[in-house]
């Protein structure tokens, strides 16, 4: 809570500074600062609405905000949006499951053993320089145009960020801490469990956030491949009929899913990294 009116400036002390502190409360306190941030986007949407109503923006270029809201409501009520959403979520979840498991497993192998690093790391570092979305044509040849190439693409998008950050996190653990652990009687397993993995966790969670972002991006691309269901299909289908309102609804759903995923990782971070100085002080 930051209600600026609640704390009156002390009288008599530094009158100039006190007046300076109080000034903003007079004009702007009608809205709390958090809401104030939404003011300018809101004005933009209102301008957009006004321009649409005045006929300055044709519906086939961009539908009016009210039209978008109306079709979002309609699509939700008809069950169309939820069912497509479930299909897309299913793709992301299975792709993430595969990609994260593979990325974590490879990073553990490469991070925890010299031999593993020699075998795994070089090819991974080479592959990561390639924009993985360029693999779409090959994936279609290998996996056809069904669900498999879509899930594979999401998995690939998620695997690399997690691999890279977990591997470098493991290698970046302070050697002095490992040494201390060794002196105080930890064996290799104990070191991995108590020192190396917890030390690599902050980096790995950053990777997880990247992986989620990358997974959404992969989903959007994957759903352009001859999809018969999913948010991507909804958007493509709408394009055929010049339904810009439905297209924007699809975009909004993608955006909301991405935001939700990010919030989820932040929550995990707050719990798992409670020891970090930045969080400790809160």
């Amino acid at each position: 809570m930051s209600d600026t009116q609640a704390v009156p400036a002390p009288r008599g002390l530094l009158p100039g500074a006190a007046a300076g502190l109080r000034r903003p409360t007079l004009r702007r306190s009608a809205l709390p600062p958090k809401l104030r941030r939404f003011l300018s986007p809101l004005v933009l949407v209102l301008l957009w609405q006004a321009a649409s109503m005045a006929g300055l923006i044709a519906p086939r270029t961009l539908a009016a905000p009210t039209a978008i809201l109306a079709s979002a409501w309609e699509l939700t009520l008809s069950g169309e949006l939820p069912s497509h959403l479930l299909v897309s979520l299913g793709r992301v979840l299975s792709g993430l499951g595969i990609g994260l498991s593979a990325g974590i497993a490879l990073a553990l192998v490469a991070g925890l053993s010299k031999l593993g690093e020699e075998i795994v790391d070089a090819p991974m570092q080479m592959l990561r320089t390639m924009p993985f979305l360029a693999l779409v044509p090959l994936f279609i040849l290998w996996f056809g145009i069904g669900e498999t190439p879509k899930i594979a693409l999401v998995a690939l998008g998620a695997a690399f960020p997690v691999y890279l950050t977990l591997f470098s996190g493991i290698r970046g653990v302070e050697p002095k801490l490992v040494e201390a652990g060794r002196i105080f009687g930890l064996d290799r397993r104990g070191l991995i469990r108590h020192v190396i993995l917890p030390g690599a966790l902050p980096s790995a969670l950053v990777g997880l956030r990247y992986a989620l972002g990358s997974a959404w991006l992969s989903l959007v691309i994957a759903e352009q491949i001859n999809a018969t269901a999913g948010i991507g299909f909804l958007v493509n289908d709408a394009r055929e009929f010049l339904r810009t309102d439905v297209i924007v609804v699809g975009l909004l759903v993608y955006a909301l899913l991405g935001l939700g995923a990010d919030a989820l990782v932040r929550l995990v971070e707050r719990r798992a990294l409670a020891w970090r100085p930045s969080l400790v002080k809160e």
């Binding site: 040494e179 201390a180 652990g181 002196i183 108590h194 970090r276």
Partner: peptide
């Protein structure tokens, strides 16, 4: 047994004080 205290305390930041002290104790 031997025990060492270093110039930097070398505490594991992700373990509480008592967990650091009991590290590796059977």
């Amino acid at each position: 047994p031997v025990a060492v205290a270093f110039q930097e305390p070398r505490l594991l930041p992700w373990k509480t004080v008592w967990q650091n002290v009991s590290l590796g104790l059977p």
